[in-house]
Amino acid sequence: MTGTGAALTYTTIAGRHRHEIEVRRSRFIAVLERVESQEQADALLAALRREFHDARHHCSAILIGANREVQRANDDGEPSGTAGAPMLEALTRRETADGRTDLSDVAAVVVRYFGGILLGAGGLVRAYSGSVSQALDTAQYVQRERCGVFQVSAPHATAGRLENDLRGAGLTVRGTTYQPSQVLITVAVADSSAELEVFRERLAGMTAGAADAAHVGCEWVDRV
């Protein structure tokens, strides 16, 4: 189970998303991507530098981890504090389901093509922040949940029926492993005492108390 203060759910985006705005002839192309590491964010930035190789700036911000443990921002040559920080603030302040500000595992890169008109510090802050905010307005979101992972053993003769029953009960079946003497069904259960108790009661009812569930770890699962 999680420690005190640890997040049990958070929100991220689904895949990659682009949105472009124009501010006084400058083009601001915002690219959002779901990432789970600094390396993935770096790879996105490198790919966009190649794609938009003639752009003047490739500013970035990242937010990673269920508790937002990693936060980074880069102005890439714009005046200090006018690009990366406003982009990061747009990510951290984004309201998702039920008014929560729990967006994470997302990288934002804004590519700027200079249009010949200086925007000033305030204009740059508004442009970079607005570019990310408008991209977030039209992005699709995914809610993630921390789950305990359990393995349920079953005889070959009844494993198929048990797996169907588990799925029918709304449980998340992560996989099935066939062994010579048994079948192991891997199930993810929301990481809370109440959900675990419900799971064990349902499993006992499905198998007349014959099956048990062994806890094998924890993982984050996308809610369907």
Rank of each mutant, 00 (worst) to 15 (best):
A46V: 00
T82L: 03
L8F: 02
P79E: 07
L171Y: 15
L162I: 04
A194N: 13
T172S: 12
S129C: 04
L171R: 12
P155V: 03
R24I: 07
R167P: 12
I29H: 10
V111D: 13
V111H: 10
C59A: 04
I13Q: 09
D165F: 00
R174K: 12
Y10N: 05
A188I: 11
L119M: 08
Q40Y: 04
Q179G: 14
E195Y: 01
P155Q: 08
A47F: 00
G84V: 01
A14M: 07
Q38D: 14
R56K: 07
R144Y: 10
V110P: 15
E219N: 09
C218L: 09
R34L: 01
E197W: 03
A41N: 07
R200C: 10
C147M: 08
A107P: 06
V189H: 15
V152K: 08
P86S: 00
G209F: 12
L166P: 14
E69A: 10
T4V: 12
R167M: 13
L118H: 11
V132H: 07
E197G: 11
V35R: 08
A190V: 13
E78D: 10
E22G: 00
Q134W: 02
Y113T: 06
H17I: 00
G217K: 04
A190W: 05
E201N: 12
R100E: 13
H57V: 01
L166N: 12
G116K: 05
R93D: 11
A121K: 09
C147E: 09
F199H: 11
R223F: 00
H156A: 03
E95G: 02
L48S: 02
P79T: 02
I185E: 14
S26L: 09
G116A: 04
S153H: 09
R161I: 05
Y178D: 10
I185C: 13
A194S: 14
T82P: 06
R174Q: 14
V111R: 08
N164L: 09
T92V: 08
A30F: 08
A73I: 00
D76Q: 06
A41Y: 05
D165Y: 02
V198P: 07
G123P: 05
V125L: 05
Q38H: 03
A6P: 08
V132M: 09
S26K: 06
P180W: 01
S131H: 03
N164K: 11
Q140F: 06
R112Y: 12
A121L: 11
C218E: 15
E22I: 03
V224W: 00
S129G: 15
Y113I: 03
P86N: 01
D165H: 07
G123N: 05
G115Y: 06
T177Q: 13
Y141D: 10
E145Y: 00
G84Y: 01
I185F: 14
A43G: 02
R144A: 04
I13R: 07
G81T: 07
R68A: 13
S181V: 03
T4G: 11
S26R: 08
L124R: 04
M1Y: 11
R16P: 11
Y113W: 14
